[in-house]
Amino acid sequence: MTTEQAVRPDSAVTKDHAVSPASRAVEVLGGELTEQSLKRYLAGIPGVDAVGLHARAADLGSRSIKTTSKAWALDRIISLIDLTTLEGADTPGKVRSLVAKGLTPDAGDLSCPRVAAVCVYGDMVPAAVEALGVFHGENVEGGINVAAVATAFPSGRASLAVKLADTADAVAAGADEIDMVIDRGAFLSGRYGQVFDEIVAVKEACRRVDGSYAHLKVILETGELNTYDNVRRASWLAILAGGDFIKTSTGKVAPAATLPVTLLMLEVVRDWHRLTGEKIGVKPAGGIRTSKDAIKYLVTVAETAGEEWLQPHLFRFGASSLLNDVLLQRQKLASGHYSGADYVTID
């Protein structure tokens, strides 16, 4: 691997906990950063007790969340959603309606919180930014972010140059967050250095002209990693390389986000926090469609990483149909009777 790229010192950092891309790896691994040292480090991570993981996830999923706690949880879920449209058939019009829904999820109840971000393909970023207008960006009161998937999403099968151009293009168009995919082929064949380098390079491509960075979410695509051990290794790899978030899936591969996988990634994030004091975000995406499921995730976050993770900087849901189900549940709590699909907007 190219060490001069990996250990490049970086002082112009403004956002959050961002450090220079690969300095994490240098600090944690110590010595010279090489393909071998990285491999040795990742191989040294203990394996996952799958039975224990499933049992723990099932246990966390059995908590009873009712009345005021449920109302709190539903509002919190909405404010943690990356409202997503990632279809080949997307149009600027579709993105505008997505943004409208993100800003006003329930037109019948303006006390409903806004979503954290809208997540679109890179070429739709200008449309999303334009549609958001003054509400673009988390630093604005009531503003929401624009997240763009990049690096030849969802397969990641393109040359590095194309991936970097894809990323830089989205950032230049105004994306606040970049969701990149790792090269699963390289990861599964043991070329960890290549995956590492790509994440470092994409992180650099997230740099804006003013020196600040767009948030980088690293999609592991756990459905293609085959084993929990791989998920744990890929999580460490993504964090070491400088990811601000680790994200389960693209949503294009089944199985997408599951509770055990998310629990496992949260455990890595918790361990990283204990090791370095730094907080990394987690984003389960794909397959979370009901409020009931989403509440299980909230419980898992609170009891694994800690309640301070339940904020948009550290936890997100990648979802599209989840929002409507949460709105129906919110309406049920407010009115006392069951609501129906006619009372929420069609996506």
């Binding site: 309406q331 006392g336 009777h337 069951y338 609501s339 129906g340 699909a341 006619d342 009372y343």
Partner: peptide
């Protein structure tokens, strides 16, 4: 009563 008030009925 739950069926009568159900908005999806």
């Amino acid at each position: 009563p739950w069926l009568a008030s159900h908005a999806d009925v």
